[in-house]
């Protein structure tokens, strides 16, 4: 119930919070909608896999231009599960105080050659153990919207809809690699994909990242399955399920309550080094630090940017 109330209160709070006008980016790490637009334009320019979108007309936010309501990049591959990555404390680096832990720092560039070395597909097993662990854990804040493995029960069987003789076998069509779901013994990578959205959170005055995952046959991932792709340190603390402000769809979101603190510290660190951080770089830095929550999702951002 608390989460529900908090979410409602956040809605009210967001309604009452005046739109930020003057730039407080350097002092507090928060940004104005104008700065969000500027940083978003720069991101789209640098990384054109990101686009601005307008979302639902009835949900437009009037402090943002109609055609620049949020940023999105779709079908971002996620080749392996966080759980299947070898991970030790050596891979971890506390970025700023205890606010943010950067995880999997040795795993930044996942090359295809590395991926082919993954023996078998262990994710099916870890998925089950993770799901049952999640169920056993009463303190768990994660709502079990769906069981990881039992979510097909409600879906009507559509085998009878198949029409095998609809068209002749076409020798010019390349057959799909046999990635039959449930066949856990093969070596085929289970390539999930994620749609990533960045909205402007008016209450926290920071960007906010949203994720919607799909399995290898493009079916939406259940919450439990998505948690396999979030760093376990962050998953239950910072990732929540909420309705996307511009689309009437519930999805996972990295809660923005810590964002401005982390940004402020990064900015002051850079300034100590005698350099100045332009606000247009805000989203690039933002994407870099949320990478620690979703280390295996390979979205595009420019790693090598200069402060």
């Amino acid at each position: 119930m608390t989460a529900f109330l908090q979410s409602k209160l956040h809605g009210i709070g967001e309604f009452l919070t005046p739109v930020l006008k003057a730039s407080k980016f350097k002092e507090t790490g928060v940004i104005t909608p104008e700065e969000f637009i500027a940083a978003g334009d720069f991101l789209v320019f640098k990384c054109p896999t990101w686009s601005w979108e307008s979302g639902e007309e009835s949900k437009r936010r009037n402090f943002l231009p109609p055609d620049k309501q949020f940023l999105v990049t779709r079908n971002v591959p996620c080749f392996k599960r966080v759980k299947s990555m070898e991970y030790s404390e050596n891979d971890e680096r506390v970025v700023e105080g205890d606010d943010w832990v950067e995880t999997h720092i040795g795993h930044e560039s996942l090359q295809k050659t590395d991926l082919q070395e993954i023996p078998g597909d262990s994710s099916a097993i870890t998925a089950k153990s993770h799901a049952s662990a999640a169920k056993d854990d009463d303190d768990d804040d994660v709502p079990d919207i769906e069981d990881a493995d039992g979510d097909d029960d409600d879906i009507p069987d559509i085998d009878e809809f198949e029409e095998d003789n609809l068209e002749a076998c076409d020798p010019s069509a390349l057959a799909a690699p046999s990635a039959a779901a449930g066949d856990a013994d093969d070596n085929i990578l289970r390539t999930r994909t994620y749609d990533l959205y960045i909205t402007y959170d008016k209450y926290y005055q920071t960007p906010r990242l949203w994720l919607f995952g799909h399995d290898e046959s493009r079916k939406p991932l259940s919450v439990t399955k998505m948690y396999e792709d979030f760093s376990q340190d962050h998953a239950k603390k910072t990732v929540t399920m909420e309705a996307h402000p511009n689309l009437s769809i519930t999805m996972a979101s990295i809660h923005p309550c810590r964002h401005s603190n982390v940004m402020k510290k990064i900015i002051s660190n850079v300034e100590v080094a005698g350099k100045e951080l332009g606000v247009h770089l805000y989203l690039m830095i933002f994407l870099k630090f949320v990478q620690s929550v979703i280390p295996t999702i390979e979205y595009d951002y420019t790693r090598e940017f200069s402060f």
Partner: peptide, 19 residues
Amino acid sequence: EKNAKQKLGPRIVDLSSSM
């Protein structure tokens, strides 16, 4: 398009959890 089982057939998606 073939379905996830590589048969000529439709697909179905359950969005009750997000809608």
